[in-house]
Design a protein around this nucleic acid. Structure first.
Length: 740
DNA sequence: CTCCGCGTGGTTTTT
DNA sequence: CCACGCGGAG
């Protein structure tokens, strides 16, 4: 076997990982150190050198994008279709298992996936049924509670509320929500993972089968696994599987959504034979960028330890720009981008990164003003758009008429005279008879006595519509099905009436939905759901096939699609630091590096939160290949208020010899704080000697900046943003502040 | 049913 | 400041 094609392009550490013996392996892969390459080459090694079958390998990622890229690169390298290789997101793989074993998983065959929006609606419905006040039980928080429990593998029956009455109610809501989901054949994202875990726990023969099959378990971005994902992996690996885990504790930025970096440390306990390989050579950034990033992340405690290096040149210094306000910051960035493109570079090679979405606004305004095309990442994605979800809801009703969520969504969309009153009655009937809304509606229509004739008629029209729709659609192929539903639902008419640019876009989206369905590769997905385990007679797979419609609906929920379109256009890239993870750009601007914004105020007070912010900073810095600009504003308008902030503490963690400070030119008109003056005049006079933006020193809290004040004389209070402890309100008379 | 006005809350995101 | 959701009026 000629191994050179697999190994030649690798460095020593990469090669060590790729060729490792069959023992648990942890690859600590720094940013830009070629981790995807290692995963892909590892698979090629197992297949081409060790003679394993792709069929015996499973690879897990967090995003569809990563999964698709990996599959593509494996196919490219092996020059064969990688269909027998199971590769996908945790959710995608869990979904595949649940479709195959829906009976063992105690699901209905046509079960559908709810996204976060569907889930919230479902929770609202449950709250209404339980007569609980939405203000007291915000659906957002209820969802959060339920998802958290599921991510920890906890069912309602496991929770002992004890004396805690509020907790007891939460558990009751959780239980009612589960009942509603079961009744309507819907599962949320967290449920997929938990269900897949329970599937194996409750069906040892299935677990044994998959353990036998998947001798090699590859995991990408392992630092992002939550409790249930790790538990699922451990089950699969069992005593015989070999985990090949790639991750980076320094790039763990999803603690807030349940990710546990600790899993990286625990790996060594759970797998005593674990070997660790560090990938520290970086192929992305210049030396100075790496030195700066290393220096920042070095302030974190409990790291597994890793230091990026490059054999390339040092490159530019890190350029730090102190702006007067957010407008000046944006002006500066736009000027530099214009320079960049005038120097013959592409706009899409530049990225503006920020901590929170609200910051994009000023940049967008400035870019529009400057006539520079840009693209903002994030926001609603294709399958999350209202009109698309409406159309999908009709399709869902065709596939499963007990889908109450879909029923509620479209029963009066477009409006057809079924008001809140009627829906409430249907809901009450459904609850009283514990049946689906669909059955309840049919019963209400039949029961002329208690239901207003007018409403009954309208409801009847809807029932007939759906009935005819599902009948008409039966023998059509997928594209025609979607087309039929989009038109006969009345959605097209509905949006045609609406007029305006927005409605125009909605119509286009519905058109695109039809094309998406027509071009949907039914075979690929349906086949994946079906058996590729022919040689295992013990594995009983349901012979019935998954309908293309059900497969398409699952695809829509699982892969919400791209955000704004036109990635190919030459645009400046705007995104949050979180969305930038995994990407790289020759020219990077990290903006708004101010204490309180980044690190965010809500993370500033606990060390775990602060360390995660620091990792986010590290992630941002290591996105830059050649030029890294970091900017902050002395003053920033946020929520309609002017705020004064100090430069982010992370800035001072960059060694000064790596930094070039850019000061705004004096000639740039710097207004003499007109708004500040007005504010000071209109408001009560500032306490003596203090003004907004004034730097002060406190005995205990250290240096800070005056952000706000109120009250007079001995009652006067000031809000000071302290460098070390964040913003605090202090009674001026006691604070003993020193002006500095 | 639709429209308007008020009130409120406002890191980070994938599946 | 602004975007969203809810409740009342037409």
């Amino acid at each position: 076997m000629d191994v050179s094609s697999i190994l030649d392009s690798l460095n020593d550490a990469q090669r060590q990982a790729v060729t490792a013996e069959h023992k648990p392996l942890l690859v600590l892969a720094g940013a830009g150190s070629g981790k995807t390459r290692v995963l892909v080459h590892r698979i090629a090694w197992l297949v081409q050198v060790e003679g394993l079958n792709l069929h015996n390998i499973i690879a897990v990622t967090f995003t569809n994008k990563a999964a698709a890229e990996m599959r593509g690169r494996v196919e490219e390298m092996l020059e064969v279709p990688a269909a027998p290789l199971w590769i996908g997101t945790f959710h995608g793989l869990a979904h595949r298992l649940l479709r195959r074993h829906w009976q063992e998983a105690d699901l209905m065959q046509s079960f559908q996936i709810m996204d976060a929006d569907d889930q919230k609606r479902m929770v609202k419905r449950v709250l209404r049924e339980m007569d609980l006040d939405e203000n007291q039980w915000p659906p957002r928080e209820v969802c959060w509670y339920i998802n958290n429990k599921k991510e920890e593998g906890i069912r309602p029956k496991h929770i002992v509320a004890g004396e805690d009455e509020l907790e007891a109610i939460r558990v009751r809501i959780y239980q009612a929500y589960e009942d509603a989901c079961a009744r309507t054949g819907l599962i949320d994202f967290a449920e997929m993972l938990l269900r897949a875990h329970e599937l194996w726990l409750n069906n040892p023969h299935l677990l044994a089968h998959y353990q036998r099959r998947f001798q090699h378990v590859l995991v990408d971005e392992f630092q992002d696994t939550n409790t249930i994902q790790y538990a699922w992996l451990r089950l699969l690996i069992g005593k015989t599987g070999t985990p090949f885990v790639v991750g980076d504790d320094d790039q763990s930025i999803y603690r807030w959504r349940g990710a546990k970096v600790e899993h990286l440390q625990r790996l060594a306990t759970h797998f005593p034979e674990l070997q660790t390989v560090r990938l520290e050579q970086n192929y992305r950034s210049t030396g100075n960028i790496l030195k700066a990033a290393n220096a920042v992340i070095d302030n974190n405690t409990g790291r597994l330890g890793k230091e990026l290096w490059t054999d390339g040149h040092d490159g530019d210094l890190i350029q730090i720009f102190s702006a007067y306000n957010e407008r000046e910051e944006a002006e500066f960035v736009v000027t530099r981008i214009r320079q960049w493109q005038n120097d013959g570079n592409e706009r899409k090679e530049s990225a503006i990164l920020y901590r929170s979405n609200a910051q994009s606004r000023v940049f967008e305004e400035m870019l529009i003003q400057g006539g520079i095309p840009y693209r903002v990442y994030g926001g609603l994605r294709f399958f999350e758009r209202a009109e698309i979800k409406d159309a999908l809801a009709y399709l869902r009703l065709c596939a499963n008429q007990n889908d109450d969520a879909a029923f509620e969504r479209v029963v009066n969309t477009p409006t057809r005279g079924i008001g809140a009153r009627s829906v409430t009655m249907v809901r009450e009937y459904a609850q009283a008879n514990s049946c689906s809304l669909w059955h309840a509606a049919a019963a209400c229509v039949a029961d002329e006595l208690n239901f207003p004739r007018r409403a009954a008629k309208a409801l009847h029209v809807f029932l007939v519509l759906i009935n005819e729709m599902s009948k008409a659609v039966e023998k059509l192929d997928l594209g025609e099905q979607v087309e039929h539903v989009v038109f006969s639902s009345g959605l097209i008419e509905h949006f045609k009436k609406e007029k305006g640019e927005k409605a125009e876009a909605r119509l286009e989206n519905l058109d695109e939905l039809i094309s998406a369905a027509s071009g949907f590769d039914v075979d690929e997905v349906v086949n994946a759901m079906q058996s590729d385990d022919y040689e295992d007679p013990e594995l009983q797979l349901d012979p019935e096939e998954v309908s293309p419609l059900v497969a398409f609906l699952a695809h829509a929920a699982l892969e919400a699609g791209e955000g704004q379109a036109d990635a190919w256009e030459d645009c400046v890239q705007l995104m949050t630091l979180h969305s930038a993870k995994g990407l790289e750009f020759p020219l990077v601007f990290m903006c708004g590096l101010e204490d309180g914004l980044f690190p965010h105020q809500r993370s500033i007070n606990d060390s775990a939160g602060l360390e995660e912010e620091r990792r986010l900073c590290y992630v941002g810095m290591t996105r830059a290949k050649e030029h890294l600009y970091i900017s902050h504003a002395e003053r920033r308008r946020l929520y309609g208020q002017d705020n004064y902030a100090q430069a982010s503490r992370f800035l001072s963690e960059i060694p000064t010899q790596l930094v070039h400070h850019i000061r705004p030119q004096v000639s740039v008109s710097r207004p003499v704080m007109p708004t500040l003056r007005r504010a000071a005049l209109v408001r009560e006079p500032a306490p003596e000697g203090l003004s907004l933006g004034q730097a002060v020193m406190h005995k205990k809290f250290g240096p800070g900046v005056v952000m706000n004040y109120e009250g007079q004389g001995s009652h006067a209070r000031v809000q000071v943003n302290f460098q070390d402890v964040g913003a605090k309100w202090l009674v001026l008379a006691y604070a003993n502040l020193q002006v500095i």
